[in-house]
């Protein structure tokens, strides 16, 4: 078991959050997190990368337990998870290369390793030609591919994608989804929150539906 949630509750104090979630996610699995806006998908994602800690219950992610985890361990957890957001969250004044290289730079990898690894990943997402461009000058689809490249450059065991196609046109959305499928086919678990049902209708991935902060398997 890669992730296990037990009575997981996050209470923001304004009625929003997630309530009493019991769920587990397996290694290498592609899980679709579905539900309307505000149902708690993003909150669950944030709990998984420990941006917020549970108010009640707990979550175990591999060796990390939300009840015992330290600030330093949270950083280590995040370094082993790839995160993709709807709004890309790239550093716009840095080049494509630098954005993708960031997770490797911050962990102190050598220039040679970084160059080799980033080139391979940029080639995989089809952006090798644009490596020198500023991230701010790219189209939405390209930005999301850079974000995917940044998420997978450190070989994560899990990729969290929070509405990754929300800001994209159908063609770009399809490219991004295909990339996530490819990543999953290579053994990385993917949890993708989306309400783009058209994009996923032909897939047989595990679907989890959320409503009002609660979760149900379909």
């Amino acid at each position: 078991m890669m992730i296990e949630c037990k009575k997981l509750t996050v209470n923001f104090g304004n009625g929003e959050g997630i309530r009493n979630i019991n769920a587990s996610f397996n290694e290498g699995e592609f899980t679709l997190l579905l539900g309307p806006t505000g149902c708690g998908k993003s909150t669950l994602m944030r709990v998984i990368y420990m941006d917020i800690l549970p108010t009640k219950g707990h979550i175990n992610i591999r060796k990390w337990d939300s009840r015992k985890i330290s600030k330093r361990q949270i950083l280590h957890l995040r370094r082993e998870i790839g995160i993709i957001f709807q709004d890309f969250r790239l550093i716009e004044n840095l080049s494509v290369f630098e954005n993708v290289a960031l997770p490797l730079i911050m962990t102190g990898h050598s220039r040679r390793i970084i160059k080799d690894r980033v080139e391979v990943i940029l080639d995989e997402v089809g952006l090798l030609e644009t490596w020198h461009q500023k991230a701010g000058s790219l189209s939405g689809g390209e930005k999301q591919r850079v974000a995917i490249a940044r998420a997978i450059v450190k070989n994560p065991f899990l990729v969290l994608a929070d509405e990754p196609t929300g800001n994209l046109d159908p063609e770009a959305a399809n490219t991004v989804f295909e990339l996530l499928r490819k990543i999953n086919s290579l053994g990385t678990a993917v949890i993708m929150a989306t309400h783009n049902y058209g994009l996923i209708e032909d897939t047989d991935y595990r679907r989890i539906y959320m409503e009002n902060g609660s979760l149900m398997d379909l």
Partner: peptide, 16 residues
Amino acid sequence: RKQIAILQQLGAGGLF
């Protein structure tokens, strides 16, 4: 501030 938040989400340490 946005850049700092991004770095924190990527797991960057405080000193970095």
